[in-house]
Computed example of a mutant assay.
Amino acid sequence: MQAVMSAEEMNDWLGKVFPQVGSDFVVESMDGVTTVMRMKVDDRHLRPGNTVSGPSMFSLADVSAFVATMACIGKEALTVTTGCSIDFMRKPEAGKDLIAVTTLLKLGRTLSVTNILIYSEGNDAPVARANMTYSIPPKS
């Protein structure tokens, strides 16, 4: 697969279709198979224990899977999450951005399947792993 738009174009589009969260995430690279995204972590993403919350990590995984799918099919905002499994493996460091490395495992006519590894910036061991399935709307 090859990306149908650049990371810059994707960042611009995300800001338009998801203005409520678009500024939280940055697409650093995408090539149609691997997508790398950053979540700019701030105080609102933290939970007691001075760590990044599970819902924040889920958001990063979800947006990363969405972007990995859009990289191949183009701008289709009505593509939606239909399945997710996430494992929280280590405590993310507060004050460090999260980096998601997403691999597109399968892209069919109606489903996209991705695997996401989430890291605290600067650490080699992942803090979470997720598998996401997206439903792609039929062509009109």
Score class of each variant (00 low, 15 high):
S112C: 13
C72G: 12
E9T: 06
D24I: 06
G122P: 03
V26C: 10
A128V: 02
S23K: 15
K91M: 09
L46V: 09
C84T: 14
E76R: 15
S53R: 02
R90D: 07
V127M: 02
T133L: 06
E9D: 14
F18E: 04
G49P: 01
V41H: 07
T35S: 14
P92N: 12
S6A: 02
R90L: 13
T35F: 04
Q20S: 13
G54Y: 11
F66R: 01
V52W: 04
E121T: 01
Q20R: 12
T69S: 09
A77V: 14
M30S: 12
K40F: 03
V67H: 09
G15Y: 05
K96Q: 10
A61C: 12
P138C: 04
T114F: 03
V52C: 08
N115I: 00
G74I: 09
V101R: 15
S23I: 05
S29A: 13
M5A: 12
R109P: 00
L104K: 07
S135L: 12
A65M: 13
I118H: 07
L46M: 12
R38K: 14
A100M: 10
L14I: 12
R47E: 13
A125T: 13
A7P: 00
G108F: 10
S56V: 02
V101N: 01
E121V: 01
V127H: 04
A61N: 02
A71P: 01
T35K: 10
D97S: 08
I86M: 15
V80I: 13
G95R: 04
I116C: 09
R129S: 14
R47P: 00
M57C: 06
T35I: 05
M37F: 02
V127P: 07
K40V: 12
A130Q: 05
E93L: 15
C84L: 14
G95K: 05
K96W: 05
K106Y: 11
R47M: 11
L107M: 14
I86A: 15
P138Y: 03
D43E: 15
G108C: 06
S135W: 08
V67A: 11
I116S: 07
M89V: 08
D43A: 15
M1K: 07
L117T: 04
S56I: 02
K75A: 13
F58R: 00
L111G: 00
D24H: 05
F88E: 06
V17I: 14
D124K: 13
S112F: 04
C84I: 14
I116E: 08
A68M: 06
E28Q: 14
V27L: 08
D31P: 00
L98H: 06
T81V: 08
F25E: 08
L117D: 15
E121M: 03
P137Q: 11
F25C: 03
S6D: 03
P55W: 06
S56G: 10
K91E: 06
P126S: 11
A130E: 07
N131W: 01
T82N: 11
T114Q: 14
M89R: 12
P19Y: 11
M57E: 05
E76A: 07
